[in-house]
Design a protein around this nucleic acid. Sequence first.
DNA 1: AACAGAGGCAACCGCACCAAG
DNA 2: GCTTGGTGCGGTTGCCTCTGT
Length: 378
Amino acid sequence: MVKSQCFEKVGLKKGPWTPEEDQKLLAYIEEHGHGSWRALPAKAGLQRCGKSCRLRWTNYLRPDIKRGKFNLQEEQSIIQLHALLGNRWSAIATHLPKRTDNEIKNYWNTHLKKRLDKMGIDPVTHKPKADSFGSGSGHSKGSANLSHMAQWESARLEAEARLVRESKLSVPNPPKNLLGSAVSAQVSDKGSAAPTERPRCLDVLKAWQGVVFSMFSVGSSDSLESPTSTLNFSENALAIPLIGVQKNPTTTLAFATNNATCNSGTTASEFDRGNQLECFEKLKEPAQVKRNLDSSMAIHDISPYASDHNEWFVDSSTNENAPIIDGFSEILVCSSLDRNPTCSGENINDNYAGNLEDIYWNSLLNLVDASQTGSSVF
DNA sequence: AACAGAGGCAACCGCACCAAG
DNA sequence: GCTTGGTGCGGTTGCCTCTGT
């Protein structure tokens, strides 16, 4: 199948758009909506191909686009989402209101990628370049679980995308009033369902954020500029939790923060083992974990840009969510029994220890569940 | 002031996917 | 089931601006 590409057509203009062209395109869409992009240029009196018009509209002219510098929160979200989703810029863009996939992609390529690289983090895998996560015999279970989280999130995003398409079909060609509301595929899905709705919080992201991003926050409020935090990786241990350990060796277990059965308030040594096992049984039941995740995703509508957003970012000055991080750290430290005298066989038997990494990741997933109950953490 | 190199970003290109016929 | 048109998406290019010499 050979399609005629728009650039093959003679007489069509390429290159930068002039203000006059912008005006024509804007005026036309404002009046009629875009409808068929292919037919639009002729109707609008533009010597451009439809594709070029669509690109100009979605990346530049759309009224709901925020331009200018990315703030720290946006940067953090991009990094975390990229860790989960890879180069799926449109999916990432759905979680960054008013930012286009193109803009995010450019920002990643020109800023964030280099910055991570400088910090010694592989921008593709989001692991330290001297990989201590999945060392030796391939990836750790943690990586695998993270991968599952990403898969779920991917599935959800795809479902969202389908909804977008469906909603577009049901409301074709929204006219004037489309301006001022979300228009793009990335944004309109939420907008069409409920105009005031913010994009849903990526609950997986929240959990991920709470744990992973602490690595960027240690010792610097502008963590991304701080290469020191990345130097804390040690062999065979997940680095992030270890940072917590270094900060507070007698921390509390809070890895299932809001689950009455599984929760906290006890120190590592006090932690009731029956309680642990009951909790872990729940956590380790994949269907349960997935149900938790699904219901969390279905119920919650907490934007990463909500006013309480900072609650689940690590604030290195106040250490607000340190309990979570430290909780994980405790677990992970205990996963390396030979290195940590506080995790002797008295406290944790071998089988249990063998599953600790599972526990870590399942606990991460459980954090998602915790947010359902109105956690103060999230 | 002039030039060169680097960085940033808008736009292009082509593949992939989907729906309609 | 196949073809075709429309659109979405991610990678890449090339122009413009900034910065250093």
